[in-house]
Design a protein around this nucleic acid. Structure first.
Lengths: 196, 196
DNA sequence: ACAGTCATGTCAGTAACTGACGTCAGTGAC
DNA sequence: GTCACTGACGTCAGTTACTGACATGACTGT
């Protein structure tokens, strides 16, 4: 199913670029309208003029179509940890990571995040994947903390707490109009008073 | 595939009882030896003289064979929350829940938990399910806290922190020889100092 | 011109589930 | 005692998520 496309340079191009992104968009739209279980991987592929086989070359499984691009979030967290001052405490490193991560979520992305979250909330299998992604994120953050000299179990606990804060704050951000950054610092504060 | 069994009362019985437990044992054994992906649902069923169809009548999916009985853990947590004194803080309620949950893990269960955890650690799909179970647990604990008057986001944060502690402590308990109860209180203490 | 690469298509296969229906011992009402 | 009913299972057919093997054809560098 080849598609000849004329780019703005006038060159003939065999394969339109950005295939995973187009698949992701189509998947989100179909999931949002027909529902996750009701849409087939082949349908998503057809929606962008491709084959089921090609879909699975870009995504390890059907759910992953909704979670493409999360490596950017991971990178933001890691950059935040790395950017924290030399003698920062684990909590301060995590706080820095949260700030860095917040910058990935501009206001324009809110509507998209909302419909995406709606889809996830309606399907247990997708919730499972989301939890898994967050847990994996916590694991790599813990690793980054360890690399900066934080011991165990402090690294795991700090990273996990950071992810907890991120999760709660993100769900608020979808509904509220405040910037994610501010919400996160609030939630982190509340976590500290709860644990006092 | 009917099995006539003579119970200790001498009565003929059409179906041997405890089917899900027997399936679970067989699943764990097969997963531990052949590996999760390498063993088929039909094989597990055959191992206890049943059919694939029957396997899926007892378990929503293949992974669930490893997670059967987790409702008991949930009940322990909930009982712990309920047993906390009247004017307990959220943190104290969670601490009580952790103590109650710890009593579900006697020393005799340790070897079983170990091989089970080995199986999970070797397969991402199973890790995903485990994360999901823990997250669901956190959700019901948060609900219990709310029912006891804890507001939001304190309830979610406290519950989530409790699950974090449980997760870290459980992994330690599998290797160390100390009782889970003691490990949990230690880890909870460390979490508090990290968040100080 | 030509060999190699890269993204895709085609096809066949496996295994996880699901729905519909049949079976048969046990159970209770009458 | 019969008879309708239920509960736990078997059988069978079907769908869909995935995977491996191989083919294709435009692009790329030599």
């Amino acid at each position: 199913m080849s598609v000849a496309v004329i780019t703005r340079l006038g060159r003939m191009v065999r394969w339109e670029p950005g295939t995973p992104e187009r698949l992701q968009r189509a998947a989100l739209e179909l999931f949002a309208t027909r529902g996750y279980e009701e849409t087939t991987a082949a349908e998503i592929a057809q929606a962008v003029g491709l084959t089921e086989r090609t879909f699975f070359r870009h995504f390890k499984d059907k759910r992953e179509a909704l979670f493409h691009g999360q490596d950017l979030l991971e990178k933001a967290f890691l950059d935040g940890v790395a950017a924290a001052p030399e003698q920062a405490s684990p909590l301060e490193m995590v706080s820095a990571a949260l700030r860095a991560a917040a910058s990935s979520f501009s206001d324009e992305r809110r509507p998209l995040s909302r419909t995406r979250q709606d889809v996830i909330d309606r399907n247990p299998a997708l919730q499972e994947r989301e939890r898994h992604k967050l847990a994996s994120l916590a694991a790599v953050i813990a690793e980054a903390l360890r690399a900066r000299g934080v011991g165990e179990p402090a690294a795991t606990l700090a990273a996990q707490s950071g992810i907890t804060v991120f999760g709660v704050a993100f769900l608020r951000w979808i509904d509220e109009e405040r910037p994610l950054d501010a919400i996160m610092q609030d939630v982190l504060g509340e976590l500290r008073t709860v644990l006092r």
